Computed example of a mutant assay.
Amino acid sequence: MTGVQSIMLAAGGTGGHLFPAFALAEELKRRGVEVDLMTDMRGDRYGSGFPARNVYQVPSATLAARAPADIMKTAATLARGTRAAFKILGTVKPSAVIGFGGYPTYPPLMAARLRGIPTAIHEQNAVLGRANKLLARGVTAIATSFERTKFLEGKVAEKAVLTGNPVRQAVIDAAARRYEGPTSDGVIRILVFGGSQGARFFSDTVPLALFALPDQIRKRLRVVQQAREEDLERVNEAYSEASISAEVAPFFADLPARMAAAHLVIGRAGASTVAELTVIGRPSILVPLPHALDNDQLNNARRLAEAGGGWCFEQRGLSPERIADELQKLLEAPVALATAAKAAKTAGRPDAVRNLADFTLALAGKKYSSGG
C-alpha cells in the first residue's frame, strides 16, 4: 500500500481521453490504490468496463461557438458541473485529481482546486488541448506525452513532466508479438480504423484503393476494417465486388491484438492510436482528422513520420488512386514496412503508465515539486 487514500480521475467522453485514464486506473489498482472516475453525462460510451470503484457523472458542455448566448450557456453548465463535483469531492476526499482533457475535466479540476486538493492534467497530444489550456495555469502539475508540446510555454511549462501516453494492459500484452513482414506469396493483413467512432473517409476510399491494386497483391489481402453502422452494408459490398477477403464491423473489442497481427495499419492519428502503434511497433499510414481546431492529429502524425515509424498524408486531395499507389510501393517493398515497424517500436513508451502512476502518487503524497 502507498498510504494514498484514493485518486479521482477525470476524463472526457472520447476514447482518446478515456483510454489513458483506463491505463492509469489499472496500474494504480495494481499498486493497491482505490480509483474513482468523474466524467460527463455520456458516461462510458465504449463499454470499456472502466476499472473504477465508482463512476460519477457531472454536467459538462463543450464551447462549440463564440456567440455570447452560447458562451453563457456553456459557462452555466460548467458552473453546475463544478458545484456537483465540489460536493462529490467533499464526500470521496481523494488525495489528488488527475484530468485527461476534454471539457468534462473542467468541473472536477476546478472543484478540486477550490478544495485545495492537488491536481494535474495529462496531455495526450503534441498540442495542448483547449480544455487543458484553460486549466494549465491553475493545476499543480502537468504530465505530457511528447518531448515538445505546442502551446506549453513559459511558467506553465515549468510544471510539466514527460511521462508518455499510457496504454492499456491489452496493448502491453499485444506488444509481445514480434513484427513479421509479409512474404512474397503469403497473405497481407491490413487493419483500417478511424479511431473510436470510425471514419467515413476510410469507408469511402480504402475499398476503392484496394480494388485498384494489381491482382497479385489484391488476392493476398486480408482486411479488417472498422466502419460506422450506416456504412457497413456498402463497405462489405465493395469488398465483395473486389473479391477481397474482409471483416467489417463498427467496433473491435480486441483491437490491440488485431493491430499486432497486422502487416500495415491505416488510420487516423489520435493520441491513443499513435501511442498504441508505437508500443506495439506497427507501420502505419496515418490520415489526420481534418479541420481540427488545434491540428493535434496532424502534429501527432508528423512526429511519428519524422521518427520513421509511419507515413502521414493529409486528407485534402487524398484520392483512392493516390492511396493505391502508396500501398503498392509499400507492399512490394516489405523491407520498408519492417524498417518502419522497428522505428515505431523505438518511439514507443511502454513504461508510460508506470511513469504516470509514479507522478500521480508523488503528487498525491505532496512530494511533487515543479520541474521535478
Rank of each mutant, 00 (worst) to 15 (best):
S95G: 12
V161P: 02
P214H: 11
I172D: 10
A338Y: 03
S240C: 11
R322P: 07
G13D: 09
L191K: 02
A344W: 00
V161N: 13
S95K: 03
V92E: 11
K159E: 09
R31V: 05
A112E: 04
Y179W: 04
G365R: 13
T62K: 14
L128H: 01
A262G: 01
Q57N: 08
T77V: 09
R258H: 06
I7Q: 04
R42H: 13
V235S: 00
T77Y: 06
F50Y: 07
V187C: 10
L289K: 06
G195N: 12
D294I: 09
S60P: 11
A157P: 06
P20G: 05
A341F: 00
L221P: 00
A253F: 15
F252V: 04
M41W: 13
L24C: 02
R316F: 10
T82G: 10
P256N: 11
I172H: 06
N355P: 06
V274D: 00
V248L: 01
A21D: 01
A357I: 00
E158F: 07
A75Q: 09
L128V: 13
P214M: 03
P118K: 05
L298W: 07
V206D: 00
A52M: 07
Y56F: 14
K87W: 12
K133C: 08
S240W: 09
E27V: 07
A79W: 07
D36N: 15
P166C: 06
L9G: 08
E241H: 15
A336V: 13
Q226C: 11
G16D: 05
A96Y: 04
P320N: 05
A344H: 04
L208T: 13
R80D: 10
R354K: 15
K366D: 07
G154F: 01
A69Q: 15
A333C: 10
A262K: 00
L162R: 12
A85W: 01
D70Y: 14
I71C: 14
E306F: 13
F202A: 03
R45G: 04
P51S: 10
E180D: 06
V287F: 09
A307E: 09
Y239T: 04
G181A: 15
L114K: 15
F86A: 03
G154K: 12
M8Q: 12
K329T: 12
F50S: 09
L213D: 04
P107K: 01
G309W: 02
G281T: 01
R234S: 14
T183S: 11
D173C: 08
D204E: 15
G164W: 01
E158V: 09
L264M: 01
E241A: 14
A352I: 03
F252M: 08
Q328D: 15
G372F: 11
F19G: 01
V4T: 08
G372V: 13
T82Y: 02
V139K: 02
L304A: 03
V235G: 03
G317Q: 08
G198W: 00
G281D: 03
A23C: 15
A52F: 05
N125S: 14
T205C: 11
V353Q: 03
P94M: 04
T2L: 14
R148A: 15
P20T: 06
P20W: 10
L298M: 14
P104Q: 10
L210V: 13
R228A: 12
P104I: 05
A262C: 05
G15H: 05
T205R: 09
L232E: 07
D358K: 02
K133L: 11
K345F: 06
A10F: 02
L134C: 08
V235N: 01
S243N: 08
V335Y: 10
T2V: 13
L277G: 00
